[in-house]
Nucleic acid binder design. Structure first.
Length: 868
RNA sequence: GGGCUCUUAGCUCAGGGGGAGAGCGCUUCCCUGACACGGAAGAGGUCGGAGGUUCAAAUCCUCUAGGGCCCACCA
């Protein structure tokens, strides 16, 4: 073995061997109960970022542990076609060559994107392999592959048939730069300081004017009314009168609508039904004309008169200037309000009327709310359920059509012949239509595609080739858990629940584990725009995948954001080195390849062996418990601390004296091998590569990845272990404070009130503290100092070698410490209510603390006197 | 406007009714036959502030200050 841990030497080899060995397929555990999770599918042309790494490491830790526990564990990998994102990327790349998609045409543009997908589609899956994701690649899916397209079409058509899908001409969110409608959750609201312009609208009869307030002056070009509150006394006399719209000259009515808030602005609202959702509603109520003044690129159209051709922001200024010139701009005040931006492009979203496809959500959300309320599916942490309910209860119909080319084409065909003259007849079909089913004439397919999230909503069952009734579908639906970031609860989780319940009649997963975002060391969200992202691939290059994995797992407190700290990765790497070197020590005493894959604990362990077995058993139970609760950071913190501080710092040192005596070391060799092997097993879900490498040295049989999850035998260690550790600590501390080298042997005479000192202590005390011990009948005074551990009092002859002043200080400090303990305990015990109300074991515990502290103080005080 | 969340050691963060924890950093000693990517011994927090509940509060409740996030048709 190399002298130090060098992950780059073996990580990629192991991945290839696992994959070739079918380790990641559920079939590796043929009799096992299924345990399945699906990946939150990353963008097919994307790159693995730290957020993916966090998500994958947690999923992989679950899956690998379940696999070792004998489950037919399956992690289904896949990628998402990511409609807008991918189309935008390819368009941008074409733009560099001066080509637009329109010039290319739909068919050739799609060829370009498929080519792009071929080129970059492997990148992220290779990166996932580098990270160690134990996905079953034989079941890999892409949201636009044939099977999933079939599922999408089946769902679309079924929803249509059930009257849960409809086409409607409505006011929706439009992104002028992406050139498509977007759903409500794709709009990001940001608070901005804008201007509230007060405009004078002259009354038709010349009797004066009405002042309206607006943040979007350019929309006045499309005004078809002014609305006031019906009970607003300032304006009641004007209701029914008309205004001459400035700049345009249109005659528009003053209407009464209780939507208007008399408190806001002037209490009079200009109404632009074509470009504002509220105004649209008012327009419907009052039968107002709808006049579009902005085109799909958000430029003023021919209805905008002299402003035609201007961008909406340009027009905003121009309109205000023009009104000002007419003396109709009464004033402008600062106004803070929230402005919607497209989550993809950042462009300000324009409310726009258009024909779109909608999913009627209420029939889908109600059951999805119920299953969370009744606990059939639950979020972890539970508090996410509140936002889930709030969102689901207020959800509006989902606009699923997108005016893009990259995506699932909407399976609807129009026949103009069979239409009613204004609208074509619509046919929604599972099979492609080449002619009209009614008249046999020509049909044209809807040009639009579906929202990317439409296909990912089906992921938990579409990956198994639903609607076919496959064996996999039967075995792995419902999935056993979903683990993802809070940022896609609405986009993805909520919709999987709706679709899963509706089409499979069962929740897609009973448990939803939500983690946070990865932030940089200053707590800022890692993002492209801030350029503060840390590329996990570079971290792996520098430190290895295992250290990154362990660092992320240790940082991932449930439900909290993760502050990525490189020093944690470095620490995890040092831990890897520690494991590596511990293995080298173990292999000096244990025949390489001789450790059994499981069991192998001695029947008759030596005291130190029994102690570590007992401690390990306790730690393992707590570790398993924490893992089942998805508290990985706590689980691995506990394991890490046990392995380093107890197994390595204590047990390896304690085992050495026994190991060097080859005639009698059998039990210790067995313990050492078995304990170390099981420590590797527990670390395998976090550090798969390193543990596999060490397994191959230690066990050399099969993969640790498919080895059994450890079961520690029930063993009780010696009760006096703690006292011995305290004694060793006391001696070391004594040495340190007096500058006595560990090489200088120390003789200790001792009294033993609790009869704790045992024969087996002798070699261990020599090895770990370089002390020899001999019993003495009574306490020793002058010329000695005292080290107290439990009921054992050790006396060290001073022989003038140590500084009495320093020793006095040492003892005084020790006394002060015990006095704090004693006081605290005493305060509680002298409180009658405490003694009466606190649980018995707590009272007993405090009592014990009190007694222990007082006996220590007593002993040390007399020592102080003896020092003179 | 509604909701959630955070404030704990110099730094970055866990924990969450019964003696304050981790990583990094810091001090002293040690290259002892696995490991200096190491070992041993230490220093360092009245757990944002004020009330309250309780035998017991960093932990639960209320208020308060300051961060962060989400939702909302704020012309």
């Amino acid at each position: 073995m190399e002298l130090t841990y060098a992950p780059e030497n073996f990580e990629s080899d192991w991945y290839a061997k696992w994959e070739a060995g079918g380790v990641f397929r559920p079939e590796i555990n043929p009799g096992g109960e299924p345990f399945c999770m699906v990946i939150p599918p990353p963008n097919v042309t994307g790159q693995l970022h730290m957020g993916h790494a966090l998500n994958h490491v947690m999923i992989d830790a679950i899956i690998r542990r379940k696999r070792m526990q004998g489950f037919a564990a399956l992690w289904v990998p896949g990628t998402d076609h990511a409609g807008i994102a991918t189309q935008n990327v390819v368009e941008k790349s074409l733009a560099k060559e001066g080509i637009t998609r329109q010039e290319l045409g739909r068919e050739r543009f799609l060829e370009q994107i498929w080519g792009w997908k071929e080129t970059y589609g492997d990148r992220i899956t290779l990166q996932m392999r580098t990270l160690g994701d134990s996905c079953d690649w034989t079941r890999e899916r892409f949201t636009m592959d044939e099977g999933m397209s079939r599922a999408v079409r089946e769902v679309f058509v079924s929803l249509w048939e059930e009257d849960l899908m409809y086409r409607g001409f409505r006011m929706g969110n439009w992104c002028p730069s992406c050139g498509t409608a977007i759903s409500d959750i794709e709009v990001e609201h940001e608070d901005e300081i804008g201007e509230l312009a007060h405009l004078r609208y002259p009354l038709e009869d010349g009797s004066g004017h009405l002042v309206v307030a607006t943040t979007r002056a350019e929309t006045m070009l499309g005004d078809t009314a002014v609305a006031v509150h019906p009970e607003d006394e300032r304006y009641t006399h004007l209701i029914g009168k008309f205004i001459t719209l400035p700049l345009i000259g249109r005659r528009i009515p003053i209407v009464a609508d209780s939507f208007v808030d008399p408190e806001f602005g002037t209490g009079a609202v200009k109404v632009t039904p074509a470009h504002d959702p509220n105004d649209y509603e008012i327009g419907l109520r009052h039968d107002l004309p709808v006049i579009q003044v902005l085109d799909l690129e958000a430029k003023v159209n021919d209805n905008g008169g002299e402003f035609a051709g201007m961008d909406r922001f340009e027009a905003r200024t121009a309109v205000k200037e023009a009104l000002d010139a007419l003396g109709l701009l009464e004033g402008v005040e600062e106004h803070s309000h929230s402005v919607g931006h497209c989550s993809r492009s950042g462009t300000v979203v324009e409310p726009m009327l258009s024909d779109q496809w909608y999913v009627k959500v209420r029939p889908l959300t109600d059951p999805a709310i119920d299953v969370v309320r009744d606990g059939t599916a639950g979020f972890n942490p539970k508090r996410w359920e509140n936002s889930y309910f709030h969102w689901m209860e207020n959800l509006r119909d989902w606009c699923v059509s997108r005016q893009l080319w990259w995506g699932h084409r909407i399976p609807a065909w129009f026949c103009d012949e069979c239409g009613d003259g204004t609208e074509a007849k619509v046919f929604v079909s599972r099979e492609d239509l080449s002619h009209c089913p009614d008249c046999g004439g020509a049909v044209r397919q809807d040009e639009d595609v579906l929202d990317t999230w439409f296909s990912s909503a089906l992921f938990p069952f579409s990956v198994f080739n639903w609607p076919d009734e496959t064996t996999d579908l039967e075995r792995f639906y419902p999935n056993n858990a979903m683990l993802t970031g809070f940022d896609i609860i609405y986009f993805w989780v909520a919709r999987m629940l709706q679709m899963g319940i509706h089409f499979m009649e069962e929740v897609p997963f009973p448990t939803i584990v939500i983690h946070g975002l990865v932030r940089d060391e200053h707590g800022r969200k890692m993002s492209k725009s801030l350029n503060n992202g840390i590329d996990p691939m570079l971290v792996i290059e520098d430190h290895g995948a295992d250290p990154l994995r362990l660092a992320l797992l240790q940082s991932a407190a449930p439900g909290h954001d993760v502050v990525f700290d490189m020093s944690r990765v470095e620490a995890a790497r040092r831990f890897g080195n520690k494991l590596w070197n511990a293995a080298r020590l173990v292999l000096q005493h244990v025949e390489p390849g001789s450790v059994p894959a499981e069991g192998g604990y001695p029947e008759d362990p030596a005291p130190a062996d029994a102690w570590i077995m007992e401690r390990f058993g306790e730690v393992q139970r707590s570790f398993d418990d924490l893992c089942e609760k998805y508290r990985f950071s706590d689980a691995y913190a506990a394991l890490y601390s046990f392995v380093w501080s107890e197994l390595f710092d204590w047990y390896l040192e304690l085992s050495k004296p026994a190991l060097y005596d080859e005639a009698t070391n059998e039990a210790t060799v067995q313990t050492l091998g078995a304990v170390f092997r099981d420590a590797l097993k527990l670390f395998h879900p976090a550090m798969p590569f390193l543990t596999e490498e060490l397994w191959s040295e230690l066990v050399g049989d099969g993969f640790i990845a498919t080895a059994s999850w450890p079961e520690l035998p029930e063993v009780h260690g010696p009760a006096s272990m703690g006292t011995m550790q305290d004694l060793i600590g006391g001696v070391r501390s004594f040495r340190s404070q007096h500058g006595i080298s560990p090489r200088v042997p120390i003789s200790i005479l001792f009294t033993d009130q609790g009869n704790e000192v045992e024969e087996w202590w002798t070699p261990l005390l020599e090895a770990l503290a370089n002390v020899t011990m001999a019993p003495v009948a009574q306490e020793l005074g002058a010329g000695h100092t005292r080290i107290v551990a439990g009921g054992v009092h050790g006396f060290i002859a001073l022989e003038g070698l140590i500084d009495v002043g320093a020793e006095r200080a040492r003892i005084e400090k020790a006394i002060a410490g015990f006095e704090v303990d004693s006081k605290k305990a005493n305060a509680k015990l002298s409180n009658e209510k405490f003694v009466a109300s606190a649980p018995e074991e707590i009272v007993a515990k405090v009592n014990g603390q009190m007694e222990a502290a007082q006996s220590q103080i007593e002993a040390l005080r007399s020592q102080l006197q003896e020092l003179g």
